[in-house]
């Protein structure tokens, strides 16, 4: 199976700093790492390859330095690394990013499955995976916690929801985004690291992948960041105890007292 894993470089810290003027993330002076959720995507890709054969390619859009990070993925079983790097890609929002990635992926040729992390730890939007699927006109499933079955042209997976999971079938090729419950990423091996050292990361420009520069980078990004904040989760939950009957009674009383319903 031909698997493509999308990978993003993010600041390697829990405390993401925001530039107050532009409302964007400060990336200078912070150690760069592979987005932690993408590590699960890579591991899942490598596991599928180990079972079905084929190859795993990682692809990223970013500055030339990202190539060093992509190289590291070779040490955990990735076969090829591709970096989309061009001034034209700078300043991309999720729309421009998914466009560039879709063009890059098309340029790579045939593929069966694209795996992304559920979101990146810097922007936290979770948009690029689904958006990429739309651009490629293929189906997608987000928040995959387990692949139950995968074979030629078919995947069945479990999608994590707030209170359980859904089982979803799709034809391949398709995009999935994965959550950390899906696996435990392996550590690199020394032989893998030695191989990584010798591996060349393929660097492609906007022209190489035939991308329309007006749809790339800042030019192709309609998003305006007005304010960034962590939304407050104001859910106050009270668990009602007792047998089903007692619970129903207490619930009804609660709803009555809160005037959500009227007694007849």
């Amino acid at each position: 199976m031909n698997i493509i894993v999308c990978v993003k470089q993010v600041p390697g810290t829990n405390e993401v700093k925001i530039n107050k003027e532009t409302n964007t993330i400060i990336r200078e002076g912070v150690e760069a790492i592979i987005n932690p959720f993408d590590e699960y995507a890579i591991e899942e890709g490598v596991r599928i390859k180990e079972k079905t054969g084929g190859k795993v390619t990682v692809i990223s859009m970013g500055i030339p330095k990202v190539a060093d990070l992509l190289k590291e993925t070779i040490a955990v079983g990735v076969d090829e690394a591709v970096l989309l790097s061009d001034r034209a890609f700078a300043g991309a929002d999720t729309l421009a990013t998914s466009y560039a990635l879709s063009m890059g992926i098309k340029a790579l040729g045939e593929y069966d499955l694209i795996i992304c992390g559920k979101q990146a730890t810097d922007g936290d939007t979770a948009q690029v995976g689904p958006s990429l699927a739309e651009k490629l006109n293929i189906p997608h499933t987000t928040y995959v916690r387990k692949i139950e079955e995968i074979k030629d042209g078919y995947i069945r997976c479990q999608r994590l929801t707030d209170d359980g999971y859904e089982v979803i079938e799709m034809p391949l090729p398709a995009v999935i985004t994965v959550v950390k419950e899906i696996n435990e990423p392996r550590l690199p091996s020394i032989k893998g690291k030695l191989k990584a050292k010798k591996t060349e990361v393929k660097i492609l420009t906007a022209d190489d992948i035939g991308a329309d520069k007006d749809r790339c980078g800042l030019k192709g990004s309609p998003t305006q960041v007005i304010k960034t904040f962590v939304p407050e989760h104001n859910v106050v939950a009270e668990m009602i105890e007792g047998t089903a009957e007692e619970q129903a009674k207490k619930l009804a009383q609660k709803l009555l007292s809160m005037q959500f319903m009227k007694a007849r």
């Binding site: 392996r186 550590l187 690199p188 091996s189 020394i190 032989k191 893998g192």
Partner: peptide
């Protein structure tokens, strides 16, 4: 198992026997 998967078990063994 982690050491094995990382190739560390054989650091002091010759390459022709699978070490490093």
């Amino acid at each position: 198992k982690y050491l094995a998967d990382s190739d560390l078990c054989g650091v002091y063994i010759e390459e022709k026997y699978g070490g490093l």
